[in-house]
């Protein structure tokens, strides 16, 4: 039998009254991938995750996790999935350790202390194990949410905005841990507003807009879509007519895209020849953000290509 996809979403739509939160989404994520779901607020990322997790039922279409249908075989499907919710939710009655023990129990996992200790250690939570959830800072609560998603060792881990409102140190701890989990064979699906993070960690991305996938490709290909690097120059004097700078932010900085690095020197040369004195130079790499902005603006045309 073929290895099942970690996640298989087939023509899923979700209607909330008049609002079409998800519109015919089809998406396969292979085991072992690190996959990014990107899109502005309200694009449908969280709704898509909710249908994966069984928190919302699709109006039409099918979803399966590791080959288990999330509706007809929901118990198996949920055992395969660890979800870190976006909201900072917690149960104020319990300590960190109690919370994790209870969560293990919900998944039928008994005598889980060894694994719980290991998760606590990896998330720098060991010293807080017996603290009540109420007393933890926001960052610490976020770590517990991650820990809760992992108690049953799910092969597929979904993180909804894992680094929202999280300080630098935790962000690094978190990414280190996520990388390790991925190296151990876990499939990782995440949504994020930090495009830089997606760029650094995701092998493939899907961009969502108004409930539809408008772009779906490997990170490499997506970045290649941004045709050029950007040369940014600050200078005194007026530039020659032969140079067409795309942007003048009004602060003395001018920007110009270029394809190859051997184009840079002639640009600077012609500036000098026309009497401009260069004060500062920056070279920008192609960024996911550029693709993101372009795709979000174009939106509907791009969806034809998927």
């Amino acid at each position: 039998m073929a290895v099942p996809d970690a996640i298989h979403i087939e023509q899923v739509s979700k209607q909330f009254g008049a609002l079409k939160a998800l519109d015919q989404i089809t998406l396969k994520i292979a085991q072992g991938e690190v996959f990014g779901l990107l899109g502005p607020n309200g694009a449908g990322k969280t709704t898509l995750i909710s249908t994966l997790a069984g928190l919302a039922r699709p109006s039409s279409g099918r979803v399966s996790v590791m080959g288990f249908d999330v509706q007809t075989d929901y118990r198996q499907a949920r055992r395969q999935l660890g979800v870190v919710p976006q909201e900072l939710v917690f149960d104020p009655f319990f300590t960190v350790r109690e919370t994790l023990r209870i969560q293990s129990g919900y998944f039928g996992v008994k005598n889980n202390n060894k694994w719980i200790d290991e998760i606590l250690e990896n998330l720098d939570l060991t010293s807080k194990a017996n603290a009540n959830m109420r007393t933890l800072s926001g960052g610490m609560k976020r770590r517990v949410l991650v820990a809760q998603a992992l108690v049953h060792r799910p092969p597929v881990i979904v993180l909804d905005e894992p680094t929202a409102g999280v300080d630098v140190e935790l962000r690094q701890t978190l990414w280190r841990f996520i990388r390790r989990l991925n190296a151990d064979g876990h499939t990782i699906v995440l949504t994020t507003h930090y495009l830089e993070e997606a760029e650094n960690f995701c092998q493939r991305v899907a961009m969502l807009k108004a409930g539809r996938i408008v772009l779906l490709d490997t990170m490499q290909n997506v970045l290649r879509q941004v045709s050029a690097h950007t040369l940014r120059v600050k200078f005194d004097g007026s530039p020659p007519a032969s140079l067409t700078f795309t942007a003048d932010a009004g602060d003395g900085w001018y920007a110009m895209p270029f394809e190859q690095f051997d184009q840079v020197e002639p640009i600077l040369l012609s500036l000098r020849q026309s009497g401009c004195i260069v004060r500062d130079v920056e070279i920008g790499k192609p960024e996911l953000e550029d693709v993101f902005i372009r795709v979000m603006q174009a939106g509907n045309e791009a969806s034809q290509a998927v």
Binding site: A53, G54, L55, Y74, R75, Q76, R78, R79, L81, V83, P85, E87, V89, F90, D91, P92, I102, Q103, Y106, F107, G108, Q148
Partner: peptide, 12 residues
């Protein structure tokens, strides 16, 4: 408070 989600995510 939203923590009902922990039960809803589990195979209960």
């Amino acid at each position: 408070t939203g923590n009902i989600v922990f039960v809803l995510l589990a195979p209960v």
